[in-house]
Amino acid sequence: MSGPLFLQSLILGVLLGGLYALLAAGLTLYFGIMRVVMIAHSAFLILAAYLAWWFNRETGLDPMLSLVVTVPVFFLAGFAMQRLLVSRLKPLTLTMMSVLLTFAIALIIEGALGFIFTGTQRRIQLPYAGDSLDVFGAQVPVVKLVAFVLAAFALLSLYLLLKYTRFGRALRATIQHPEAARLVGIDTDRTAGYGFGLGLATAAIGGTALSLDATIYPSLHWHWIGPLMAIIVVGGLGSIPGAAIAAMLLGISQSLLQIPLGATWAQTVFYVALFATLMFRPQGFFGGRLAQRF
């Protein structure tokens, strides 16, 4: 493998890893809050991508402007979903039943997208789609860079929000110990709802970033949910830093493996990592104590 080619794959891997990190952070957030595996996360991702594409087609403006609408709408949808649907499930069977419930939501979204926009593959035509930057001989497409910056910015905001604000402290307390959180006066139900909203907001941002340089179609979300779930298991369920690190590592590995193996086989790295994790360290590599029970 030549130097520039390696460098290019590495850079592309980092850019891809950034997007994975943002999405996996959302997925692991739901798990931390309510032990819910949100299968519909990637369906919302594709929904956001479709909305960005539709916005661009109707108005001709930059698809990133659609974030102004989609992020608040997705936040509210996540809040409503947690309060109205997930919290109705019986606590004993919550984990299993929530998988099925979110699976049902994913099917509804996929079916509705196929019904409204048909199964045709869609792509946004951007004026800067063909541009690329030259970094030490490596060609880095500008759209991928923009998507990465968007994802990185969202991830950083999420981190700062969780780490330094009052709401973030309440959310982390809810994740760590709901009873204790209630004792000190946190409305854990509402906080959990907001947490879900935040998770879906990451899907909105990720979907818009994805729509910039990907061809989208309704059943695309199945190609995303597998890698994302592998990432959160490898990183340790419930751990946001773990998810981010695992996303980066696996994104880079996928990108590097694409050269010798080709695009399809490179995807198997996620599943290989998943099975290896389960065999050797079922609680995940970077996870905290939350993951151990699952």
Binding site: V37, T95, L274, L278, R293, F294
Partner: peptide, 8 residues
């Protein structure tokens, strides 16, 4: 168990 089994 649980969630991880479904994921696998």
């Amino acid at each position: 168990r649980g969630a991880s089994f479904v994921i696998v």
